[in-house]
Structure formats: C-alpha cells, structure tokens
Design a binder for these strands. Structure first.
Lengths: 347, 347
DNA sequence: TTGAAAGCGTTACCAA
DNA sequence: TTGGTAACGCTTTCAA
C-alpha cells in the first residue's frame, strides 16, 4: 500500500538495510554510512512520503512497545478521578516509550467481559495491561484472566487475592486521618457518612474512622453511621438523618465530596454554621470541593502519580525486571484543609 | 517467544494453514475441515496456551483495525466533557471492531507537538486519527499535519480551515437558544458572562447571544458583557461586575457551569433571589449543575454521540467510502431547564 | 480436501 | 564497511 523501505532502496540504489539504518539515524548498531549516502536516502524517503510501518517494526522486534488500559466499567470513567489517572498513565507511557491502547467495557452490552477476555485480551497486541475499576469480577472470569499469561497491574480494585499486582490507596488510613483531623479541630462527636458498607472499601473506611474515634475516646455509636451510596439524593437523606439525631454530631466525615456537599446543604437548611457548629470533610478532593461555599476540606488522592507508577511497574514486569508476585504499592491520601473543617483560622 | 501456529501444527500433525483456519472458526474462506480435526486442533491450542499474535495479523492484513485518539491538550482531559466523548468513542470502536490508541500531548514537555508529529503520527500504527481539543496550532504544524496523508477527524477544535473533517457544536445557536430561553422567562435585560472573547468560540457565542437580544428588542450594551475565563475566581469578579451595574440585569447567560455557579454565589451575597430576581443559565450541563442550590439550567452537549459519530465518520474515510473533503457534522446543544431559570413552575 | 510457499515491512545476522 | 538474506507470525494463493 504505502511506500516501503524496499521501494526507497531501489530508487536510491542501495539496500533496504542501508535505508533502514539511514532513516533511524544515530547509528543504531555500529553501522557506518557515509554522510552523503544518508543524506541522499533521507531525501528520497522524504520525496516519496515514506512513513515507517510501526506494525512491521513491532512484529520483528517481538515487543509491541504498547500497553493496554482496561476500564472495567464504562460508567466510572466519568468519575473525576479517572482523567487524573489517565494523565499519569499517559505521561508514563510517553516517558517510557510505549503507546497506550484503551479498552472500555460497557456493562450494558451482552457478554462484555466475555468478549473482552476472548477477543481483546487473548490477542497479543500489547505487552501488558493495567486494569482499573475492577470492583466486581466473578471467580470464573478471574480465573480466566489469570490463566492468560500476560503481565497485569490492577489499580483501584476491589481486593480479591494476594497474588495480584496492585496499586492501591490506604483507605483505612485515609479515613483515620480525616477523622483525627476533625477531632483535632475540637469535634466531640463525629459521624460517618459512608457510601455503601457492602463494599470492601467502605469497610476499610469504617475501620479507619473507628480507629480514630476510639483512640481519642469519642462515642462510637451506630447512630453516627449512615450510607449515602456516593450519590446526591441518598446522601442528602443520610445527611438529614445524621444531623437530626440527638445528641447532634459536631463533625461529619463523608465518603466523597458529593455527599459532603449534601451535608453542607442540610446545615444550610437547618441553620447550622460550618465549620463552627459542624465541621465537614469530604473525600477525593474533586473540583467540586472548591466550588461550594464554604469550601470543602477533603482527602486528596494522588491519582496522577498512581497512574504513572502503575505503568512504570507494569513496564518493569514486561521487561522481566520484576517478579510477578503480588507486589503492592500503597498510596496514602493527603489531608487538604479548607474552610469547612477549619475552626482555627476562620473561627 | 510464545506459542505459534507452527508449533501447534507440529504437535497436532497438521499444517499451519489448517490450524489457522480451524482456530478462526466459521469457515473463513471456503475451506472444509472435518469436525474432528478442528476439535483436536482447538484442544492442542488450548493445551499449549496459544494466543494469536495480533501484530502479525495486522501486518498481513494491511489494515491495523486500530484508530488513534489524540488529546491535543493534557489539561483539557480533566474537563467534564472529555470522559463523555471518550465513552462514545470507545463504544464506536467496539461496535465497529477497532481498537483505540490514545495519545495525550503534554504541553509542559519540550517540543511535545513536534515529537508527536514525527514519532507517533508518522509511524503507521493506526488507520486514522481523531484529534480533540486542538484549540491552538500554528501554521507550520498544521501544514505538517496535513502533509501526512492519513485520515483525520477533528472534534471540538478552534476553526481553522474549511478543508478539514470536523465534528463540531453549533455554538452560535446554543447561545441563541439559551438567551432566548431567559427572554421567554420574562427577562428584560440579559447579560452575558463569556469565557475569553479572544477565542473564536466565544465570538460565535457572542453572536448567538446578540442575535436573540436583538430579535426580541432587548438592550444591547457592552456593559452587559464580561469575561470570566471559564474559571472560578475571574468569573466571580465578572459576576460581581455584572450584578452591581445599574440598571441591573435580570438574567445572565454564562459560558460554562462553573461561571454560572459564581453568579449564583454573588446573588446569594447580594440577597438576590434566583430565578425571580435573576434568572441564570450555564453551559455544558456538567454534574455541577445538579449539585448546587438552586439547581442550574444549562445547555447540554451531546458529547457521547459526537464521539461516536466522529469514529464512525473516521472509519468511513479509512474504508474509502467517504471523500476527505472537509465534511462537517454539526450538533446542537439542548436546553435543560432546571430551577435557576424556571420562573413559571417555581414562581 | 489438504499443504507448501509466498508475502506483509521491518530488523538483525552473517558473509563478503 | 556493506548488502544479501533469514526471520518475526500470520494469511492466502496456488498447486497437489
């Protein structure tokens, strides 16, 4: 179809080998070509509009120099953290000289996981995969996934097995830090607006919250806990329930910024001032946190760095510089204090 | 490296040809193999853990069955619309049997465009590209881009030339509709909180706003226009300027939801009620619109559909079913009325 | 019906 | 130093 090395070679009166070396420049291997020849070959290639065929190159090199990113759930790519992961992932690919193949799994399509497992993943097209947002996978699919002998790194997943390469967040510590922060601001009764306690991640969060509560001797009461499912309407209801309870809490740790904002709204309804009457902290530090009044404290996720490191880790595995034995990289969320929990500066 | 067709052929005592046909199933070509042989070959392949080499397949087929998505600006992938485009793009790729290669251009890296143009784009690795967010490109880069003879479709770009395949939004009409909506709600003096009027898109927006203003005989005054740069702080200042002017406006069209929310905040500061005193409408219909109180009316972008259509269009070009002559697909934003502009239902 | 062999475009080895 | 040539893994044509 296009212009090939051979065609250039014929026109320039040299061998394809010479063309290959000339065009790659910088003396790959130890081949010497006269400056003059190189220049002529370059000119011919330019004239003919030559574009190297990356596919042929990948075939002969035996490595694709390409990595796959699999978004296990199409819905979750609309979460604010996803583009941040993607940014880090893309940057790492660029830095390390890989290209990135993105697959999105659409739950509403029939057998989407099955199709992916057999058509995409089994076809050798990339050197390895980063899997993101795998919060649900059945035993059989997991088995099939592992049976395919290809380097995998999992990011932000529902914990499954120890034998998996994993880039994760220390959720327990994140909630511990958030809760401790409210206590340090003087809160005496701190509530927890969770997402969905049937998820493993939420249980870890609960543990972190409880650890702080106990450490400082605050009341540990099931009436202090409600679920908002990470979404607006149920969080609003949960926030009302928490704020209308007696005795009332004076601090709330929320599972994400959306639910924390609902707490702010209810405080507004009830005439409670934030942070004086109620101190509030969200989770994930999304753009929303800076949009609301008062601005929302939140736990920041180093998503871009996590994405970067996931790729770097995957590349190591691909190059065989790393055993594939369930190494785990853990990141800790960082406390970002804004007005909603800052009693000291804003009184 | 891995298990090849040849290896399977030897083990099964047949030819590589037979294996190739057997594993692809469904009688590609008109070849007949006995059920029994096919079954045996399949079993051997399974036992040996065979994974077809997609790269070799791509090479011999002459088409990569792969498309590139180029995010011209890494920062803009954090905009709420990007994941929606991506969702449509990914779905189209899935439906049409293509894989997707994502490239992100990081402005902070030296010669990022240059590197992309020479290393990535010139390397034949995909059949064609969708370019997104190209709001700045110099003459020389544009020339080099077009000189590479590869199918391109541009999405959400700064308009440059007529000869470009383009999927775009009818910005003028979007702002016309938004403005007209406020007028229909009874507004007599409508202001425009723009982004940055040095951008072409903002000029189109201004034209749409003005068209509606003039059509209904409302005042057309430069004091009704301010720039907020799409960002929080400058939008807040611009909103104050607009709302403190005399005579005061009773309706504001904003260039995005972030700036519209700043209008809400200022109304709150000034004790103005929304929508009774001031009706407000944003743009892009992001998640933020439903988060604030009162909920924000906005112009909805059919981003997912645009992404889908961009890929479908690109595939047509790749298959040669479409001449590459600057065809343009235009989408119209849809009015989404929420409380911030709805005087009739909420009084 | 089946298999051998040519070819896809590139790289790398090995003679010359 | 140079260029022919084999090889990468697959598909497809052509001959048996």
């Amino acid at each position: 179809m296009g212009v090939t090395l051979k065609a250039i070679a014929e026109k320039a009166g040299v061998s394809p080998t010479a063309v290959s070396f000339a065009l790659r420049g910088k003396n790959p291997g130890k081949r010497k070509l006269s400056e003059h020849t190189v220049e002529r070959i370059r000119q011919v290639a330019l004239d003919m509009g030559y574009r190297p065929n990356g596919i042929a190159r990948r075939l002969v090199n035996g490595r694709t120099l390409s990595l796959g990113l699999v978004a296990w759930s199409a819905d979750r790519i609309e979460e604010p953290l996803f583009p941040k992961f993607l940014k880090g992932i893309g940057r790492a690919c660029e830095d390390l000289g890989y290209s990135l193949e993105l697959s999105i799994l659409y739950a509403e399509q029939d057998n989407h996981i099955d199709r992916f497992l057999t058509r995409v993943l089994r076809e050798k097209t990339v050197d390895g995969y980063v899997l993101i947002f795998v919060d649900e996978i059945n035993e059989e699919d997991l088995y099939r996934l592992n049976a395919i002998n290809v380097p995998l790194v999992w990011v932000v997943r529902h914990p499954l097995e120890k034998s998996i390469n994993n880039v994760r967040v220390d959720t327990e510590r994140g909630y511990y830090l958030a809760t401790r922060h409210l206590i340090e601001q003087g809160c005496k009764r701190v509530a927890f607006l969770a997402g969905d306690l049937s998820f493993q991640a939420d249980l870890e969060a609960l543990m972190g919250y409880r650890r702080a509560i106990k450490e400082f001797g605050l009341p540990d009461d099931s009436s202090l806990i409600a679920e908002g499912n990470y979404r607006k309407v149920p969080s609003l209801q949960a926030a009302r329930k928490l704020l209308d309870a007696t005795p009332r809490s004076d601090g709330i740790v929320a599972a994400n910024d959306i639910s924390a904002v609902q707490v702010l709204n209810v405080c507004n309804e009830r005439g409670l001032s934030v942070p004086q009457d109620i101190a509030v902290i969200g989770h994930n530090d999304t753009a929303l946190a800076e949009m609301v009044e008062p601005q929302l404290s939140s736990m920041h996720m180093p998503a871009e760095q996590m994405g970067y490191d996931a790729i770097a880790y995957l590349v190591n595995i691909c190059k065989g510089q790393n055993e594939q034995t369930g190494c785990v990289k853990t990141f800790t969320p960082e406390l970002v204090v804004r007005r909603s929990s800052n009693r000291k500066s804003y009184g």
